[in-house]
């Protein structure tokens, strides 16, 4: 009863036997095209999963889903109080532009920020799911990005209201909101995938990302105008800050929504950079995530 290698002793070696009957290696990583097809096949699950997470978030609160809109509103108020009134970072921006400028900045930045912070825990926070069911693991980071997009759409209600209150009325430029969001969403999916893979191996990142994101926020001109504040500093710093993806997405959204924020505030080649960042992160992030597909169950 101690025979540890039973029943196969006389037969062919396992690999040959498997080949003869057309058995495949369990848990092997599919090719990129197949993987994408599988992921597309799971689109209903991805959407259902992100909607469920979003709904569950406030399901115990008395006000329920009202918080979807109330939370960003309160956020905008806090930032206005601190930066608009107390610190006065609105240098060089007229008052009726500054408020929507700030609110746009906060919401657009938060869109990526929460994708990153949630992305770190996309795999490590759903390990039970990963170890119980089959699906392309990329479904998890994608659903996190979609969850944040849904959250942002609620915030857009506040954003549009703010713009209206401060005199920016609907104009043809508002149509640009759609491509800007689409581009930023692609960027977010990519960065979420990168963070998901990193976070699955090193959960410590969850402690570290808030600091990185806060630095990024203060460097991206969420509550101030980069060209105005950096006057007199070397040009390359200004250019580097203005061309970082989040500064670009914020600027484009402000340009689309705010009447007093014209094209003269945008850095050169802004659409090109917006697209390039999104494609770079989107494609590279997807491939990077897929490369470790079979490893995620290990935790």
């Amino acid at each position: 009863m101690t025979g540890a290698t039973p029943s196969l002793g006389d037969g062919p070696v396992p690999a040959e036997l498997a080949a003869r009957y057309g058995l495949s290696v369990s848990g092997a990583r599919p090719g990129l095209a197949t993987y994408t097809r599988l992921l597309w096949g799971r689109r209903h699950f991805i959407v259902a999963f992100s909607t469920a997470k979003l709904t569950a978030q406030y399901s115990q609160a008395k006000l329920g889903q009202v918080w979807q809109v109330a939370t960003p509103l309160l956020n905008a108020c806090v930032y206005y109080l601190v930066f608009g009134i107390l610190l006065g970072t609105r240098r060089g921006i007229p008052h009726d532009v500054f408020v929507p400028f700030l609110v746009t900045g906060v919401f657009i930045f938060t869109f990526t920020q929460s994708s990153v912070t949630a992305g770190v825990r996309a795999i490590s926070g759903n390990l039970g799911l990963v170890r119980a069911l089959h699906f392309p693991r990329a479904a998890l980071p994608v659903s996190i990005a979609i969850q944040q997009l849904q959250q942002l759409l609620y915030s857009m209600v506040i954003l549009v209201a703010t713009a209206l209150v401060f005199g920016s009325y609907p104009s043809p430029r508002w149509v640009l909101v759609v491509p800007v969001l689409a581009i930023q969403f692609t960027f977010n999916v990519g960065i979420t995938m990168v963070m998901a893979r990193l976070g699955s191996k090193t959960p410590d990142l969850a402690q570290l990302t808030p600091f990185v994101m806060r630095t990024w926020m203060y460097a991206s001109g969420v509550m101030y105008s980069i060209p105005v504040m950096l006057q007199g500093k070397p040009d390359w710093i200004k250019i580097a800050l203005q061309h970082n993806p989040l500064a670009i997405y914020m600027d484009l959204m402000r340009y689309a929504l705010i009447r007093g924020y014209g094209a003269e505030n945008l850095p050169a080649h802004v659409w090109l950079f917006a697209l390039a960042w999104a494609l770079l992160l989107g494609v590279a992030g997807y491939i990077y995530f897929w490369k470790a597909e079979e490893q995620y169950g290990r935790g």
Partner: peptide, 19 residues
């Protein structure tokens, strides 16, 4: 879990017919 392909094997392999 290893048979189901949910946990990667450190060494060795699992072959299956279907999922």
């Amino acid at each position: 879990r290893a048979i189901a392909g949910l946990l990667p094997a450190e060494k060795g392999r699992v072959y299956t017919d279907g999922q």
